[in-house]
Every structure is written in C-alpha cells, then in structure tokens.
Amino acid sequence: MEFGHSMRIVIIDDSGLRATVLEEGLREAGYDDIHIVPPRGAFVARLERMAPDVVLMDLGSPSRDTLEEMLSVSRALARPIAMFVDQSDEAMIGAAIDAGVSAYVVDGLRKERVKPVLELAVRRFNAFARIQAELDEARNALSDRKVIDRAKSILMAQRNLSEQDAYTLLRSSAMNQGKKIVDVAQALITASDLLGGGL
C-alpha cells in the first residue's frame, strides 16, 4: 500500500485494548503514522497539534460532541468532516454504524484512500466486540463458580455434607425448581446471610 505511509491517523479511544487492536491492524496494513489519544482533559489541544488526516472514534463515545465542536471551530485543522466513507454506500454506512466506528476525514482526502482504513476499522471494532463478549462470558463463568463454591461450603458446614454431596444437593434442588445452579446457590447465600449463618 504505497500511499498508506503518508496518512496520519489518530485513534481517540479510552479503551486501551480496542485502540491497540485497531492500531495493530492498521500497522499490518502498512500504515505507520498512528497515534492513540484518550478523550480526557485537554485531548482537543493535543489533537490540534497532531494535525491528523483521519480521526477514528468509537461511535458510542460521549466525547463525540466535544470533538465535533472542536473540528468545526478549529483554525489549526483543515475542517475534517464526519464520514462513513462513501455517503451513497448505504451498506458501508450501516456496517460502520453497527460496528460503532465514526471517522473524521480531512476534507479533500480522496475517498479511495480512506475506504480501506475505515473498512479495516469496522473489521477490527467487530473483532474487539467479539473478544469483549468472550471476556465477559469468561468473567461470568468465574464468578458463577465462586458463588457455587460458597454455597457448597455453607451446606458442608451446616449440614455436615461432603463437597460432592453438597454439590449434588444444589444440583437436584436446581433441577426440581427449574432454575440454574448458580441461582439456587445465590439464593442459599442470601438466605444464609440474612439468617446470620455467616460463612
């Protein structure tokens, strides 16, 4: 991508991980003038000094209004405009909005040059969303296990059960009530706390 090298891209993002995922993708594609700026404090002044050609931002960031205001009044920047690349390409616009990417592009920069950047951003934002969902799932699974472990120890202490029996009891209660084991375990912990079972 011989023209990629002269394009300065700034990623405004306060999720370090997503910005990194995007930056890596851009570097692999041959863009090397990439900067990450978190949208905090005087980020607008930093951005002005950088004079980017393309600004990428999470569509869900509450700081978009601040950024747009700055772009519309800045004398230092050449009026970047909000862009979903080709305004007539509805599929592209839809994909960008669904992925949660917004791009501001210096007026006059050719569409063909920006399109691959935005397409890449869309793919990477989607990839990030998948990673995020998997992480959340893993985290939930971990906390589920902790809840179940605690409920087991309550049963073991109060009813003199072995760990295996405690688990069997939880599981059969869950099956009888048509609930998830973790919900039964949580209810047991709450009840135990209320009754001062303290464990």
């Binding site: 209004d65 909000a82 917004s102």
Partner: peptide, 15 residues
C-alpha cells in the same frame, strides 16, 4: 445514545 452527534447520525443515515 451517548452523544448528540451519534443520535444525529443514526437518524440521518436511517439506523
């Protein structure tokens, strides 16, 4: 939606 810019874009682009 968390910003007026995004609310505007969602409306203007038919989301």
């Amino acid at each position: 939606t968390t910003s007026w810019a995004t609310l505007r874009d969602r409306l203007v682009y038919g989301q």
